[in-house]
Design a protein around this nucleic acid. Structure first.
Length: 467
RNA sequence: GGCCGGUUGGCAGAAUGGCUUAUGCAGAGGAUUGCAAAUCCUUUUAUACUGGUUCAAUUCCGGUACCGGCCUCCA
């Protein structure tokens, strides 16, 4: 019934858990040296939709996500500084304080976006002993070697290295953008354990059989996923940028250790892009959720924008698009509020119609998370004349358990209207009754200049709202 | 150089071998209103170019152009 695009097979495949009804899902999490940008957050919105869709289809899910607080912190600057260390120096805090600060910030952002917190959130620094054991096993099996003080994974020993990402190993431009490491046997080899830090003043280090050091980046995901979810995963997700390197390396080390396939379904979220530049933590304009909030958009406006595009399509970010998403979202909110106020009687057609809409909605969603099409069902429901308001509301609230737009929390905003405004409004009612429209308009302008908007209702009534 | 993806209306973004190419935003017209706002109704506008397959292509295949992403920092 469920179908997802699987990067491993490069096709849309029917999904079924490997064992029973439980889905074991691992998602690559944030590196916590700075705030997440909205491109990062798009991926977590995608993973949240995936989780909720699986749940809707009736599965139990164990959802794990890592927090990278060590080991994957090189910058793209010329000198390769430790991002965590740099952040710590900048803010006069310890490395771990920085990690915790941005971890908290990350979960504040995801909560605001209605992203469910994964069942298991694991910090790399708390599993270093397991990583060491993992590397030791790779060494025993002959997949690892020590060179220049660091432990490397020997990609030449893993015959299918690069197949996953369709890498053409002969034609990769090694060192095109990053300094080459001449300690490696093969250009694609990667560090499992560092004792020779590229950085001065490496602060977080642990004792290991190879000397005091710290783990390479890729090892953390394999180690923690195996520790919590066992020898095979149903689903592993992340951003599309992880395909050629991070996930390729995870597969190499995990399958080298296990001797069998590690992950059944690989799902990857496409990038949020900017018109003329790259969305990046380390260059260009840095778009955070709080920046959007400063500009007058709510986190859920952004979530709505993400839903309008399929997760495997690049989505171009612009304020024009944000405005559109915001307008749509606010319209939707008003319509839902009207449904909540409406007191009409149920219709005979309700049940049958509701089921048809539900099936249609699920059909789109279960087909590789077709959120753009699923959204159209909301508007079909709203326009349907053969559905009662109660039935419409019930449907939309049900859709929202996946979409996460906060429908059940939509409330009429109780405004504290200053007496001054109420007085002006009452004065205006009088003016209108006397057909003194010049004064009436002047009063409306005055109310507007004080930041309130007045709408006339039938029978001389009015509504005041904040501008 | 290699790998991956894309090009649909003013904007975003779906879908499809034939039937009016969704939906939202924006625009236009109308209803309503003293005028507005809100709401409701109606509505204009699009498949990059080029060969091929086919009774029929926007859809499938090939080529061209352009765009984006990645090639060991990235979601």
């Amino acid at each position: 019934m469920l179908k997802f695009y699987n990067t491993r097979t490069r096709s849309v495949d029917s999904f079924k858990p490997l064992e029973g009804n439980t889905v074991r899902m691992y998602c690559c999490g944030p590196t916590v040296y700075n705030y997440a940008h909205i491109g990062n957050l798009r991926t977590y919105i995608f993973e949240d939709l995936l989780y909720k869709t699986l749940k809707r289809a009736g599965y139990d899910i164990i959802h794990e996500m890592n927090v990278t607080d060590v080991g994957h912190l090189t910058s793209d600057g010329d000198e390769g500084e430790d991002k965590m260390l740099k952040g710590a120096e900048r803010e006069h805090k310890s490395v771990l304080e920085i990690a915790r600060k941005y971890e908290d910030a990350f979960f504040t952002d995801t909560k605001a976006l209605n992203i469910r917190r994964p069942d298991i959130v694991c910090r790399a620094t708390e599993y270093v002993q397991d990583m060491i054991a993992f590397v030791q096993k790779l060494e025993e099996k002959g997949y690892a070697y020590v060179s220049g003080g660091n432990v490397y994974f020997d990609t030449a020993k893993f015959k299918t290295y690069g197949d996953f990402a369709h890498l053409d190993l002969e034609n990769l431009r090694h060192g095109a953008r990053v300094d080459t490491d001449d300690q490696k046997r093969n250009p694609t080899d990667f560090v499992l354990w560092f004792t020779q830090s590229k950085f001065e003043n490496q602060i977080l280090t642990w004792d290991s059989p190879w000397g005091k050091g710290y783990p390479g980046w890729h090892i953390e995901c394999s180690t923690m996923a195996m520790k919590h979810l066992g020898d095979t995963l149903d689903i592993h997700c992340g951003g599309i940028d992880h395909i050629p390197v991070h996930h390729t390396n995870e597969i190499a080390q995990s399958e080298a250790l296990l001797g069998h396939r590690w992950v059944n379904f690989w799902l990857h979220g496409e990038f949020l892009t900017l018109k003329n530049e790259k969305m990046s933590k380390s260059s260009g304009e840095f778009f955070t959720l709080s920046l959007l909030e400063k500009k007058g958009y709510s986190p859920l406006h952004y979530r709505y924008l993400c839903l309008t595009a399929h997760y495997r399509s690049q989505l171009v970010f612009s304020y024009e698009n944000m405005d559109s998403a915001k307008a749509t979202y606010e319209n939707l909110k008003n319509k839902v509020l009207e449904l909540k106020k409406a007191k009409d009687t149920p219709l005979e057609t309700d049940e049958e119609k509701s089921k048809a809409y539900l099936d249609e909605f699920n059909g789109y969603l279960f087909n590789d998370l077709g959120t753009p099409q699923a959204l159209t069902i909301i508007y079909a429901v709203l326009k349907d004349k053969d559905l009662s308001s109660a039935a419409k509301l019930k449907l939309i609230e049900d859709f929202d358990t996946v979409l996460g737009l906060g429908v059940s929390e939509f409330k009429e905003e109780k405004l504290d209207i200053p007496e001054e405004i109420t007085a002006l409004a009452e004065k205006r009612v009088q003016a209108r009754a006397n057909k003194d429209f010049a004064q009436s308009d002047a009063l409306r302008d005055e109310i507007a200049s004080l930041g309130f908007e007045i709408k006339d209702m039938p029978q001389g009534k009015y509504e005041i709202s904040k501008k």
